[in-house]
Design a protein around this nucleic acid. Structure first.
Length: 201
DNA sequence: CGTACGATCTGCT
DNA sequence: GCAGATCGTACGA
C-alpha cells in the first residue's frame, strides 16, 4: 500500500491560483488518464495551448461571453471543459485558476502510455506511430473523451492527471503560436502553444 | 427561427 | 494541397 505522499494524482491545488499560460507549460510531462467503462487509458502530455480568459481573442470566453457552453470555464479550476468542434471532434481542456476567471488549457497531444490496445481500437488503427495521438481531436478520441466528461472533476475517477516525475528540459520546450485561430487577430500570434517530446525523471 | 462557422481530421489528388 | 464531413453554439432578425 502506497502512502499518501507517493500518490501521483495531481491535487486540486495544482490547478488553482495559476493562469492558463503557466499551467500549459507545467502540464508537459504529466500523465492524462481516463477510465471509461472500466477501461484505463493514459498518455504523457506533450502538446498544450493556453486560452487565457476574457482578454484573449482566441478564447470562447473572450469579451466575458458567459453562455451555457462557456459556463464550465468560469467554474473553479480542477475540472474539465469538453466541447464539440467542427461538429465532429470533442476537444478536451483543463480548467484552471479561480471561480469566475475563465482560463483553460487545451490538451493537444499525448504519447500513449497505458491501454494502447484500446487506444488503437478507438483510433481505428493497426499500429502506433508518433502522430497517432497528436492533435486535439485524435487525443480525445484515443482516451475516449466525449462531451459527457464536460465539467467533471479532475480529481475524480473518470479523468485525472498524474505526476510521475517526468519533466522536460526547459530549453527543449518548443513555444509557438496557437493553431487554427486565425480569427483572433493580433492574439493569434501570442506564444501560447507548448510542445515537449523528451522527458527526464 | 435562420444561418454562419468553428481551439480538426482524413482521404484523395 | 485541398475539399468534405457534420452539428452545436452564438447571435441577429
Amino acid at each position: 500500500m502506497k502512502n499518501i505522499t507517493s500518490m501521483p494524482l495531481l491535487p486540486l491545488e495544482f490547478y488553482l491560483q495559476k493562469d492558463a499560460v503557466a499551467l500549459s507549460e507545467q502540464l508537459l510531462g504529466k500523465v492524462l488518464c481516463t477510465k471509461i467503462n472500466g477501461t484505463l487509458t493514459s498518455g504523457i502530455i506533450c502538446e498544450t495551448e493556453a486560452y487565457a480568459g476574457i482578454e484573449d481573442k482566441a478564447s470562447h470566453a473572450y469579451g466575458d461571453r458567459r453562455t451555457a457552453r462557456t459556463e464550465t470555464m468560469y467554474q473553479e479550476g480542477g475540472i474539465s471543459y469538453v466541447y464539440l468542434c467542427y461538429g465532429i471532434h470533442h476537444l478536451f481542456n483543463v480548467v484552471c485558476n479561480l471561480k469566475d476567471i475563465p482560463h483553460a488549457v487545451l490538451i493537444r497531444g499525448i504519447l500513449p502510455l497505458q491501454g494502447v490496445r484500446t487506444i488503437l481500437e478507438r483510433r481505428g488503427k493497426r499500429i502506433l506511430n508518433t502522430q497517432s495521438c497528436i492533435g486535439p481531436g485524435k487525443m480525445s478520441q484515443a482516451l475516449g473523451i466525449s462531451i459527457e466528461l464536460n465539467g467533471v472533476s479532475l480529481t475524480g475517477n473518470k479523468v485525472w492527471i498524474e505526476d510521475l516525475g517526468l519533466t522536460p528540459e526547459p530549453e527543449q520546450i518548443i513555444v509557438s503560436k496557437r493553431i487554427g485561430i486565425d480569427y483572433a487577430e493580433e492574439d493569434a500570434n501570442l506564444p501560447y502553444r507548448f510542445e515537449a517530446f523528451n522527458f527526464s525523471s
